[in-house]
């Protein structure tokens, strides 16, 4: 419906990207890799927000729990994180389902502020629990495949982190297929759009909420297992991802899962653009605040005009 307006925008973004490719290709390469990680963590949170209508401020912490679970499995059994991915996803799905049943479910009809305080409390509890169980020491595993690199002419860059971009694309389009093409997915979408209407046609709304929450935890759990291949694990490792995920979802608009992918590319490339210069390197971490503020301001101004 915005075809006419969005064409020049798309062209402008494409032009900026081409310019960056020609001038600093690594900005784009590392930007896309970061975008993949951001998006693949944010997408499950967006799923919960779109269907259960809960802002889960413990989302990144569930990834942290998954990362520790994967770390333990891999160090005990000597397996690769990619093999631990499935058991870890099952563990976090069950963990998430229990959290949902015991806590979040009780606040579904409560004011949003109560829900935010609840999930924020869960986040802090999980972080502190990890502190007690695993101590604040960072843990890192190294894998030879992570250092895979590629040379194009003069340029040499790491390619391993593109797996996160692949994961994000698979997640975004896999979920899109699930929600729009399967009966179970359509039912979940229906619950998100109108829970009372869904109950009237025989859909078990309560069960759907629980399953979608568990599914989101399984997906971010799988990401947690992949996460330990590239980063160290420590108790507060998840919290910046909660913040960034929330901002990406807000930028994309609630319910717009492929949009999270686009917002992540914008965030990833912008951050790496600033990191490319010594003078602006320290600014990279506030990029997402600037982006979120401009998106929300832009939306409010447009809303006022309409």
């Amino acid at each position: 419906m915005l075809k006419k307006q969005s064409l020049p925008k798309v062209a402008a973004v494409a032009a900026i990207f081409v310019a960056i490719i020609l001038w600093r290709p690594t900005v784009l390469i590392y930007g896309l890799q970061a975008a993949g990680l951001y998006a693949s963590i944010a997408i499950p949170m967006g799923l919960v927000l779109g269907i259960v209508h809960i802002v889960n401020l413990a989302h990144g912490e569930i990834m942290m729990v998954a990362a520790y679970s994967s770390y333990m499995l891999c160090s005990w059994l000597g397996i690769d994180p990619y093999i631990s991915l499935i058991p870890v996803a099952i563990i976090t799905a069950i963990f998430g389902f229990i959290i949902y049943r015991l806590t979040i479910r009780q606040t579904l009809k409560a004011p949003e502020l109560n829900q935010l305080i609840l999930t924020f409390g869960i986040a802090i509890s999980l972080t502190q629990l990890a502190n007690i169980v695993f101590t604040s020491q960072t843990r890192k595993m190294s894998f030879s495949y992570v250092s895979a690199s590629m040379d194009i002419g003069e340029l040499s860059f790491g390619i391993y982190n593109f797996v996160f971009l692949v994961a994000a694309i698979v997640l975004a389009y896999g979920l899109k297929f699930f929600l729009h093409k399967t009966v179970a997915g359509k039912a979940a979408l229906a619950v998100g759009q109108n829970p009372r209407g869904a109950a009237i046609v025989g859909i078990d709304v309560d069960k759907t909420y629980g399953l979608i929450f568990a599914l989101a935890c399984a997906l971010v759990g799988a990401m947690g297992a992949m996460f330990i291949t590239r980063s160290a694990v420590f108790p507060s490792v998840g919290s910046p991802f909660t913040m960034k995920s929330f901002c990406l979802i807000a930028m994309a608009g609630i319910g717009n899962i492929p949009g999270i992918l686009g917002a992540s590319v914008l965030l990833g490339v912008s951050e790496n653009f600033l990191k490319a210069f010594r003078a602006t390197r320290g600014w990279a971490d506030i990029v997402f605040f600037v982006l979120i503020i401009s998106v929300i301001l832009g939306r409010s101004i447009r809303g006022k005009r309409a």
Binding site: A187, L189, A190, N194, A198, I200, G255
Partner: peptide, 26 residues
């Protein structure tokens, strides 16, 4: 089967999907 006063449809879904969901869980 209820046709509610406020209709309670799934506004972001097609006629086809709304009809399909009417029967999918019965």
């Amino acid at each position: 089967a209820l046709v509610p006063q406020e209709r309670e449809l799934f506004p972001g879904m097609s006629v086809a999907d709304n009809l399909e969901l009417g029967a999918a869980f019965v």
